[in-house]
Design a protein around this nucleic acid. Structure first.
Lengths: 215, 215
DNA sequence: TCAAAAGTGTTCAGGATACACCCATGC
DNA sequence: GCATGGGTGTATCCTGAACACTTTTGA
């Protein structure tokens, strides 16, 4: 059994995914999603942490703000070595630092410019993107991509990046504010030669599900 | 690694789940969700079929009309024998016959009247119910619970049973018919001393996702 | 004074909800 | 003719979508 990690963050207004260059065969030096063996007696969640930390220097508990199990992929032919089962996780964060101790040369790359990937890694990333899109529409999961205080424009931009479409500014604000997920702070964000923007914060940093969905 | 099967059908206007009485320790003779070991080299999907058939006589490929992987539960303490990981599946069907060859005395019981269950089986069933409820609202998955030709009242009743709430007859019909998931047949269903009901059929028996959700 | 992003309201259309009576049948 | 479930339409509300100008700031 193996565990794979699909880790997203937004860089340069693009959704990017964490890949590594594999240090070992098969597919040595090829880019791939970080992953590894899950020995008996270790939970998949613990294996995720151990493997991601070792291979990329990212600590999923400290460096990510949202983690979710995705799916258990199940193909005898999946791996030339005969792996049958891979439990995949998705994680999201912000300003994720790649460790110097990383064993597999980690790097982020835009999900729309993926290199050739081994096994079914491309499918796994697609699956993760779809899940992420869905989560944004009915939860507050977007908090994982934002600083603790943020402007409405930053919030909207995160949605646009992940959903892959532009949104109307007035409608977006009206709707999002009506959900009671965020509140005004009395701080402003000043930057550049234009009017400062009000900073907002989430009322909860835990995952909240909405009754009315959002897009 | 183990595989667990949560199998639903509607009997007597109640959502019911398939349980077995375990033939072996631990928890011998206790009711539980059917499940078993998944040896290396067998996909979890194949293990699901093999285990369910052996323990309950239900062939998931032939006797169920909808199957979906649910979640991979992950607790070292889950099983006194030290199991760490269980891949769970949900299946739905109609008039499911329990096999004579079953090794573990299978029976259906209403999900609202569950006996004490071992491990985290109660959580798994709750998880499955929630997933099922969600699926009904944005897919045509309800077909799994219905005969190939059915009346609108039967359809509505299936929704009411699974969602656990009553729906308005006129609004239900208006909305469901507008989704283009079903079409009229020219057959009628006659039964009892009242007006016969028109029979409908699904336009597709494959899973279809709706853009507009339903409840 | 100019460029750049922040911020703000109204109108309109379509879906959601609430609600009550007539119809066809078997006995 | 009566009991039983089948079948139908309208009015109202609310949400979603489209859309353009004023405000505040730094240079």
């Amino acid at each position: 059994m193996t565990v794979d990690a699909v880790i997203f963050q937004i860089i340069d207004d693009k959704l990017q995914v964490l890949l590594v260059r594999r240090s070992q065969d098969p597919f040595k030096d090829q880019p791939a999603v970080p992953g590894g063996y899950n020995p008996q007696g270790e939970t998949t969640r613990d294996a995720l942490k151990r493997i991601t930390l070792r291979k990329t220097g990212v600590d999923v508990d400290k460096d990510l703000k949202y983690i979710e199990q995705l799916y258990t992929f199940d193909t005898v032919a999946r791996d030339p070595r005969g792996h049958a089962v891979s439990v995949s996780y998705m994680g999201c964060g912000r300003e994720i630092k790649l460790g110097k101790t990383a064993s597999e040369r980690p790097f982020f790359t835009p999900v729309d410019e993926l290199p050739e990937l081994p096994y079914d890694h491309a499918d796994i990333i697609t699956y993760a993107r779809n899940r992420l899109r869905a989560k944004l529409t009915y939860t507050n999961a977007v908090y994982a991509f934002l600083p603790s205080k943020f402007t409405l424009t930053q919030l909207q931009s995160a949605y646009e990046t992940i959903l892959g479409k532009e949104l109307d500014k007035r409608n977006f604000r009206k709707k999002f504010l009506s959900l009671d997920l965020i509140r005004e702070t009395n701080e402003m964000f000043r930057e550049g030669a234009h009017r400062p923007a009000r900073l907002y914060e989430f009322t909860s940093k835990k995952l909240v599900s909405l009754s009315r969905s959002f897009d």
